[in-house]
Nucleic acid binder design. Structure first.
Lengths: 219, 219
DNA sequence: TTAAAATCAGGTATTTATACCTATTGCTAA
DNA sequence: TTAGCAATAGGTATAAATACCTGATTTTAA
């Protein structure tokens, strides 16, 4: 028996997984949670020892990434399989670094889901060719990322204040530095982000998730 | 028998719905589609006459709102039930205007889903107290919205150019008007959007989906 | 350990944005 | 049909941002 916990905020989605697993008697859903916080709580409270945790990335309260970081602090033997609608290379790399055993898309074929779970249970991981390639190219990717941008912490701090509609003078007052220094940082940010003006800086911040915004059309 | 079509991009989610409906022999899923385009195509091609269409809002290719607009042009007798994780008042109002019969959240209890479908089949709608209240307050809401924002077409045009990092002078040249006119529009935009400066305008544009950006953390 | 980058800060000048004022024309909804 | 708003545009003034320059420490990475 493979003991499974599902963390996923959409209950109907959980029902879908239940149905898929109901055809496989070797997989036993021992518990489900609607967000990361709930998952962590039930594991601690009920002293659960799942073999595999199916973890959705986008969840309220505590999202997938933050939940994974917490799980890793707990030293469980459970393997984590990530569930998401959308991935990009850098998030996959980050999750691999945190010891994730497999990635599944939400429009995956049910057989693939079963296969991933069984493989992770047996071998400890289930990784397709694309992700294998990613692992190989990761140094290249890291370098590319570094060359491209990478703002310093101070620059990030100032960028965030710019995005809060603070002027240079206000930022200077807030950080107890000269407005000239803030200007210096602004210039470096403009250079590094390849922006023409403040507008470009804001767009950069949003596209790089430095700034968090609610942009859901239906929210 | 209630003939049902599901339009939803996450296959596992569809599985969940299948499981729920498998317990109710009166509901028959005659077809499923992974996006709005697919839905429209199969309805036309197979001359389907569903009683109810379960429509997810966030789908690739053609999303729920646009699909609904297309469906309404086709003069079907089918009732539409919207499925989404997140709603807000104004999108609900908009969808009600387009003749939607019910709203379901993705973390709804399965029984509620069944109940909604049966009620819509019988009565033509299934609307809870909250949405009833919304309908009553809609004039109030409409006024509030109008007072609040609603940029004119010209202002929208200029806002978009601002977000492309154009300066006032550049916008004036592009639109063959005086920079003073552009300034006038800028001021109105600042007022209407409640922005302190250009940064605020950009944030407004993104939050109101005037500007389209890829900002998904996991994409 | 040495070179590079980050952080700090000053000067000068120009461009751009914001804050007020004004006014005309044309459209539209009460 | 008239009040209100959108779109146009001018004046004047200040505030803010951008573009160059300079240099001193400190921190980090090769």
């Amino acid at each position: 028996m493979i003991k499974l916990i599902i963390a996923e905020d959409e209950n109907l989605f959980i029902q879908g997984l239940r149905m898929i697993f109901s055809k496989n008697p070797e997989i036993d859903i021992i518990e489900t949670a609607n967000n990361g916080r709930e998952l962590l709580d039930i594991i601690v409270k009920d002293k659960l020892e799942p073999d595999i945790i199916l973890l959705d990335l986008s969840m309220p309260v505590l999202d997938g990434v933050d939940t994974l970081l917490e799980l890793n602090k707990m030293n469980l033997s459970a393997k984590v399989i990530i569930l998401s609608s959308h991935y990009n290379d850098s998030i996959i790399i980050k999750l691999l670094d945190e010891g994730v055993s497999a990635f599944l898309a939400k429009n995956e074929h049910p057989d693939e889901v079963i296969k991933a779970i069984v493989e992770v249970y047996k071998k400890g991981f289930y990784i397709n060719d694309y992700i294998m390639q990613l692992i190989r190219n990761r140094r290249l990717l890291a370098k590319k990322k570094q060359l491209h941008t990478e703002l310093s912490n101070r620059e990030l701090e100032i960028l965030k204040l710019i995005c809060k509609e603070y002027t240079t003078k206000e930022i200077a007052e807030k950080l107890y530095i000269s407005p000239r220094t803030v200007e210096g940082h602004r210039n470096r940010i403009l250079e590094k982000t390849n922006a023409k003006n403040t507008v470009g800086i804001v767009l950069y911040a949003i596209q790089h998730k430095i700034l968090e915004l609610n942009v859901n059309k239906y929210q």
